[in-house]
């Protein structure tokens, strides 16, 4: 597994309590992390809607959804894009999980998870697997431009037991 470069933000590690948050998932609906207590949650922070690597990554998650569901896991994508961009992007790519908008105050949730790249004003490409009690059990920061895939997430979900 590639090691995060020194300049990368230190993301929250396994063992940490996952900070709760509430973000918009549609123009008139919000999602809170605590809504999912009792089941595993996969948080996928990513830099931007529409960029090619994200498209691959999130499209792959949409296609692997049936496997995630075997663990009763909820997948949440998070970026600093506005909710209207998320809606258009999600429709275009036929995504089957919510995209949350970490838009205002910009990147606040990403910062709580150590997954904000201040230099570019975007979320880092970081993954977190949170157990049913709300504790982070696995986290991974992907190098720029590299699609981290789904294998790490699936292994982490398996390890939850």
């Amino acid at each position: 597994m590639p090691r995060a470069e020194a300049t990368k933000p230190p993301i929250l590690k396994a063992g940490a309590k996952a900070p709760d948050f509430t973000l918009k998932s549609t123009p008139d609906q919000s999602v809170s992390l605590r809504d999912f207590l009792g089941r595993p949650v996969v948080l996928a922070f990513y830099p931007a809607d529409w960029s090619p690597v994200c498209t691959d990554q999130l499209g792959l998650y949409a296609q692997v959804m049936s496997e995630f569901k075997k663990f009763n896991a909820e997948v949440l994508g998070i970026s600093v894009d506005g909710i209207w961009s998320h809606l258009a992007f999600s429709n275009d790519r036929k995504l089957n999980f919510p995209l949350l908008s970490d838009f205002e105050p910009k990147g606040a949730v990403s910062k709580m998870y150590g997954a904000f790249e201040a230099a570019v004003g975007e979320s880092a490409r970081a993954l977190f697997v949170i157990d049913k009690k709300g504790v982070i059990r696995w986290s991974y920061l992907s190098p720029d431009g590299v699609n981290p895939g789904a294998d790490g997430i699936l292994s982490a979900l398996e390890d939850l037991g």
Binding site: D56, P148, D151
Partner: peptide, 10 residues
């Protein structure tokens, strides 16, 4: 799925 588990991302 064999690809997903082998690190095929695209």
């Amino acid at each position: 799925m064999s690809g997903v588990r082998s690190g095929v991302n695209g």
